[in-house]
Simulated scan of single mutants.
Amino acid sequence: MIGQIKQLYYKYEEVISYLFWGIMTTAVNVLIFSGLHIFTNMNYMINNFIAWVISVLFAYITNKAYVFHSPSKSFLSDLKEMTSFFGGRVATLVVEWILLWIGITLMHQNQILVKILENIVVIILNYFWSKWAVFKNSTNKNQPK
């Protein structure tokens, strides 16, 4: 039984790690967004952008190290990888803005609830971008160690 659980874990280790760090990234994003919403008078789009920049940097570091196990080969390769990572996140930032605008401006829903729901959509989109475009040459083996 324990062996089967370990096998399942190793088979889905990348997805499990991504979900864990995705939840942590979402927590960073939502906490910063919420803090700015509560303690400042800034527009929700500005709050979202600040939260986005900080959480994407957090996501890059955790995805590189703990999800896709992408080694640092050189400064140039890391810069290329980071540029691709942030580029994909810019695309999903546009999705975030659209979903926030629809949920908050058009539908007049709670800002924090809309923020959490749009993050679910963004996490899914970001996983596929990271797996297939950014960290496609990672060393994650998904096998028992």
Rank of each mutant, 00 (worst) to 15 (best):
Y9I: 06
W129A: 03
L106F: 04
K73Q: 07
L125M: 15
A91H: 05
K64L: 12
F68Q: 01
A27S: 14
L8N: 10
S34R: 12
I23M: 04
Y18W: 03
S74T: 03
F86N: 11
Y10F: 14
Q143N: 07
L100W: 03
Y18T: 01
F58G: 01
I46P: 01
Y66H: 11
K141A: 14
K64T: 09
F135I: 01
V121W: 12
M24C: 15
V30E: 02
F49T: 12
Q143G: 03
S138W: 04
Y10T: 06
W129G: 05
E14G: 00
I50W: 00
T25I: 09
I5F: 11
A59Y: 07
I104R: 09
H108V: 08
N41L: 08
V67Y: 01
L76W: 12
L125C: 14
S77C: 06
V121A: 13
Q7K: 10
S130A: 15
Q7Y: 10
D78Y: 05
L31P: 02
G103N: 06
M82N: 11
M24F: 12
L36R: 09
F33W: 09
V95D: 07
Q109V: 03
N48L: 12
I2F: 08
S70A: 13
I116E: 01
V90Q: 08
I98D: 03
F33M: 10
F86H: 11
K115H: 03
K11Q: 13
I112T: 05
I123F: 10
K131E: 07
K80D: 05
Q7I: 05
T62D: 00
R89T: 04
Q4T: 11
A51S: 09
N137A: 08
A51D: 04
A65W: 06
F33R: 09
F135Q: 00
L125P: 02
M24L: 15
G87H: 07
Y44M: 02
A51I: 09
I104H: 12
P71I: 07
E118F: 06
K11N: 08
G87F: 04
V95H: 05
Y9D: 04
K80G: 10
V134I: 05
E13R: 14
L57F: 12
T26R: 00
F58D: 02
T92K: 00
L76N: 11
F39Q: 04
K145T: 13
I5Y: 09
T40N: 06
I116K: 01
V122H: 00
F33I: 11
H37G: 08
N48H: 12
I2S: 08
V56M: 06
N43W: 05
L106C: 00
I124S: 02
K80Q: 14
V28I: 15
M24T: 15
I123M: 13
V15M: 14
I104D: 10
M24Q: 03
L93C: 07
K73D: 02
E81T: 15
T25D: 02
M107C: 13
A59P: 08
E13M: 10
